[in-house]
Amino acid sequence: MIISKLKEALICFKAGRVTLPYPFAPHDPEDGFHGRVVVDAEKCVGCGGCAEVCPPRCIEVSDPDPDRRVLDFLLERCTYCARCAEVCPEEAVTVTKEYETATNDLNDMHMHIEVFMSTCRRCGRCYEPPTPLDRLMVTGFRPPTGKSEEA
């Protein structure tokens, strides 16, 4: 028993102190980490592909008038899967390494993008769906009922 206790103690002491004094000395995540999503409004063409593939449906697309398309990113529901960035044809959606997203104000987690669409109507071909299964979604298989239609 004593020997196994010594072995256990050895495992402990060999490691040394590994935890970081975290809030005082921040730690960078690994490369390729999926952090908070940001959108470059300049690059966005308003195709809505990101909204179509978003599993938690946290991107809302609305067309208040024929010229204007509004994209609301409600990031409190984001699951950091990065599908939006994956499908974006213009690389307007990018994933940062920012992970300290806790906030008292939900507005901090909202992004509001307005795109002028004067010459381009929604055609569904601005981005290429990654698989036919995703294409099925695009071509209107959303059920007519339920709130998901707004999305």
Binding site: F33, T131, L133
Partner: peptide, 17 residues
Amino acid sequence: CEKISGNRKTYGMNIIG
């Protein structure tokens, strides 16, 4: 795992196909 998938857990890597 974070390096491989971008996430520490809940990798979001699988998709049909």
